[in-house]
């Protein structure tokens, strides 16, 4: 079996002695076609575990040092080189090549903001008398589970509104320095994760903008700033392979 990690250009220089996931770990190599190659390594018939996720990310991060990388979903296996050529490279090669050109010199940066939940809840209660009344009912002990759910629903909605406002505020500041961006919140809406597609050459400016932003936000949010990452959130075939990033978020001076 072969683990398939990513698509790269056929000319992509591989780091020396890069090993893949699984035990024993196989050598990472390319299965090439004309313009595009798949990055693979040999693996026995074994289940992948959480820590293989780290190994997978290791390989992608080592690859992106040397050129554009189009990640293929974790857990993708192929029986042999021929299958990689006929099932992956043949159908996806052309699109892959053009997406790789688009992603050249770009990396993904992630900014996660974790809100202080108790402070958020206190603010929310303070700003909503109806919600306070409802919580009072629950505390009085008379309320049945539907009131509990209603409280939780209103809290979730309130937090989601705050998260949306934060999302817009942060994106407003960082978007001008990125070519594309997106965001998501966790189920519990106390965490906002934003991801940006940034030119490597602009990383220093982006860092500075993030730092300034975090200073302005204060200690209300605990930040986690991660990167440079392979463009994991910008690789998806259905959405991104067939279209260039929207012109709204693409400054014209880069010409695409």
């Amino acid at each position: 079996m072969l683990v398939v990690y990513a698509l790269v250009r056929s000319t992509h220089p591989l780091p020396e002695r890069l090993t893949g996931i699984g035990k024993p770990a196989g050598q990472v190599r390319l299965v090439g076609a004309e313009r595009v190659a798949a990055v693979v390594s040999q693996i026995g018939d074994q289940a992948l575990h959480d820590d293989d996720a780290i190994g997978y990310l290791d390989v992608l991060q080592a690859l992106i040092e040397n050129g554009p990388v189009l990640p293929i979903r974790f857990g993708t296996l192929a029986p042999d080189d021929d299958a990689v050529r006929t099932e992956i490279l043949a159908p996806l090669g052309e699109q892959g090549a053009s997406r790789l050109d688009q992603l050249d010199g770009l990396v993904e940066m992630q900014l996660k903001l974790i809100a202080d939940q108790d402070a958020e809840l206190r603010d929310l209660l303070a700003s909503s008398p109806p919600l306070r009344r409802l919580v009072g009912q629950v505390k009085a002990g008379a309320a049945d589970v539907s009131v509990h759910i209603s409280v939780g629903e209103q809290v979730t909605q309130g937090l989601a509104e705050r998260r949306a406002a934060l999302d817009a505020q942060v994106a407003g500041r960082l978007k001008p320095l990125a070519l594309d961006h997106g965001s998501r919140t966790g189920d519990d809406v106390t965490v906002l994760t934003q991801y940006y597609l940034v030119r490597v050459d602009d990383l220093e400016r982006f860092d500075a903008a993030v730092q300034e932003l975090l200073e302005d936000l204060g200690d209300r949010y605990t930040p986690e700033y991660v990167g440079p990452l392979p463009p994991l959130d910008f690789a998806d075939a259905e959405n991104d392979l067939t279209q260039t990033p929207s012109s709204e978020t693409t400054p014209s001076r880069w010409g695409w």
Binding site: Y56, P71, T76, D207, G227
Partner: peptide
């Protein structure tokens, strides 16, 4: 720079979150 930037998420769970459901599906 002054900003505290990590090359990858600090916890295993966050790494899994980072890569799960991402990338091209074959």
């Amino acid at each position: 720079t002054g900003v505290n930037r990590a090359p990858r998420p600090s916890s295993l769970a966050d790494v899994v979150d980072l890569i799960l459901d991402k990338g091209i599906v074959i």
